[in-house]
């Protein structure tokens, strides 16, 4: 298929210049915002909130009303739609590497080997065996998955019980729970994913990627896991109780020659997803027939952030060169 045949909606995109590496994109209310490597939250209309003055944002998570950012200044900061920032936590002389949001306003963050959880009841911490690679709250029950070397610890912050340990050799980074909480998947330092079925800790190895997987996302119904790190989106089937074990992944939305998928984000309510590439291109792809719609051409920079508005009618993207945009359908 030549590019001319792909439908484009690029004319519906409003773009803006964030001025620095975009770490995460999201929406505060109906307005798109971008967390950057210069410690700022940049809004589509050009407003900037200095969430971590002089610092850098290492990870960010949006909850619709605010964006909570982890900074190399040792602070966890919440920024609202008005650009107002509030420090939620602070760790002296350390980078706050990761942050996650849980049920009832629970907040988790990590600095080095220590993971922290703050709820209305107070603050607790958990010492991981090695540096924390990522954090994710389970969709059900108050449980935090903490990725580290050689596995994942499942910590119940409200209980004194020893965390459950899911073992697999190697360095585990980002984590995703399937929406039903039955599966947990990590990206690894190696070019592979590892997954566990929570009920029996059964392993799922997903490998064969040419690059490190930096972005992965479950579909809203949990039937598919979309992943970056290859020349096309690699889609692992999770519909059956065995997950992807013994099944072949599907491929979707191939990159142009010499480019690679760097970012994926599922539509919040349909079997379609947005895909970002290492040449700056952004596409939407439909799973049923593989149809593709161009959102941004290969204009350079690597796509590092993609996020849908919860209505599914807007899509925000950002690149490592600070180019940001929002598609309004």
């Amino acid at each position: 298929m030549t590019e001319n045949e792909v439908r484009s909606v690029a004319e519906l995109v409003t773009s803006c210049e964030a001025g620095a590496h975009i770490v995460t994109a999201g929406f505060l209310g109906d307005e798109a915002a971008f967390a950057t490597g210069e410690g700022e939250v940049v809004f589509l209309d050009g407003r900037k909130a200095a969430a971590h003055p002089g610092g850098s944002i290492l990870e960010a998570v949006f909850d619709g009303a605010r964006v909570v950012t982890a900074g190399d200044d040792g602070r966890v900061v919440a920024t609202g739609a008005e650009g107002n920032s509030e420090t939620l936590a602070e760790v002296k002389n350390k980078w706050v590497d990761h942050v996650a949001l849980g049920p009832d306003g629970a907040l988790a963050w990590s600095a080095g080997k220590t993971a922290y959880v703050k709820t209305k009841k107070g603050e607790r911490s958990f010492e991981a065996p090695s540096t924390v690679g990522g954090l994710a709250f389970a969709p059900k029950g108050f449980r935090l998955a903490v990725a580290h070397y050689n596995g994942v610890s499942l910590w119940f912050p409200n209980s004194d019980a020893k965390p459950e340990f899911l073992e697999w050799k190697g360095s585990h980074l980002c984590l995703r729970w399937s929406p039903d909480g039955k599966f947990l998947v990590t990206t690894m330092q190696e070019n592979a994913l590892h997954g566990w079925r929570i009920a029996d800790s059964k392993h799922m190895r997903m490998s064969g990627y040419p690059a490190r997987i930096r972005s992965f996302c479950f579909s809203h119904d949990g039937k598919w896991l979309a992943t970056s790190g290859a020349e096309a989106v690699v889609m692992w089937p999770f519909a059956s109780k065995d997950g992807p074990m013994g099944k072949e992944p599907d491929m979707l939305a191939s990159a142009r020659q010499g480019s690679r998928v760097t970012c994926v984000s599922f539509h919040p309510s349909s079997q379609a997803l947005s895909v970002g590439y290492s040449d700056g291109m952004v596409m939407m792809a439909r799973m049923s027939d593989g149809a593709e719609i161009l959102v941004r051409g290969p204009e350079g920079g690597e796509v590092t952030a993609l996020a849908w508005h919860r209505s599914g009618m807007s899509l925000a993207y950002g690149t490592d060169e600070g180019k940001a945009g929002v598609l309004n359908l």
Binding site: A20, H21, V23, T36, G37, E38, S56, I57, L58, D72, W95, D97, S130, T131, G133, Y149, S171, Q189
Partner: peptide, 16 residues
């Protein structure tokens, strides 16, 4: 390899 170095350099590259 040094896992902490990968993590730190990943972070530093965000303010290249």
């Amino acid at each position: 390899v040094r896992g902490d170095l990968i993590r730190i350099i990943d972070g530093l590259l965000k303010r290249k």
